[in-house]
Amino acid sequence: MSIWEYANPKKFIATSTPLVPWVMGLAVAGLVVGLVWGFFFTPDDYRQGSTVKIIYLHVPAALMAINAWFMMLVASLIWLVRRHHVSALAARAAAPIGVVMTLIALLTGAIWGQPMWGTWWAWDPRLTSFLILFLFYLGYIALWEAIDDPDTAADLTSVLCIVGSVFAVLSRYAVRFWNQGLHQGTSVPVATGGRTVDDVFFVPLVICMVAFGLLFVGLVLIRTTTEIRARRMRALEARMRR
């Protein structure tokens, strides 16, 4: 193993370590401002009542759930083409964050859906797509965990991520087709409120979205650093055993 293998990760750690407190600090500050603003200082929607406040968690989480997968896709492609270890490890680091974001989106959606739609769960296209996305995340993480050799694991998960992305997009359209087919246009209206919402709700929502984005970046940096160290540790231990 040459020293060059660590040159890049070392630089990554050196660059990211001082950045992490800033990113995380900003993320937490943004979350506090956005959520407090949203929770305490926005009026209730005339139709949804106070449940409209859930939007400040639901929409940013859903946004990051999709973006996390997209980031993993890009990182996987970079790994396959350029063979930068940091890239593969960043994809691995992002997956659990994506799972939690998907879970938050599903959970808050269910809690919102109970009083608004009268049901915790409906097989609505968007809901179903998110459930499928959740399954993709689980499979991706399971494959990482199952393979011992880090390079093999990185290669195989990257291939899975690329194929999975194609099928995730395909599933999204298939699900939309399927539900329309069953319900003939009477499916549950996805009144997210996001489109028609006016500035009172919009400003804290944007703050929350930015804060979730920063939180994601900060967590990816932390977790990638961890993965790099874990990998180096394994390499060192393997060398010492020899």
Binding site: A142, I147, L156, V159
Partner: peptide
Amino acid sequence: LTVGLRRGGLLMSLLVLPLYVPTLIFGAE
């Protein structure tokens, strides 16, 4: 994907089943 793993069967189901979704939807539809 899972050929080298000792107990890849269960893992493979987890990986493959989500990929089956579009085919299943259109076929059953």
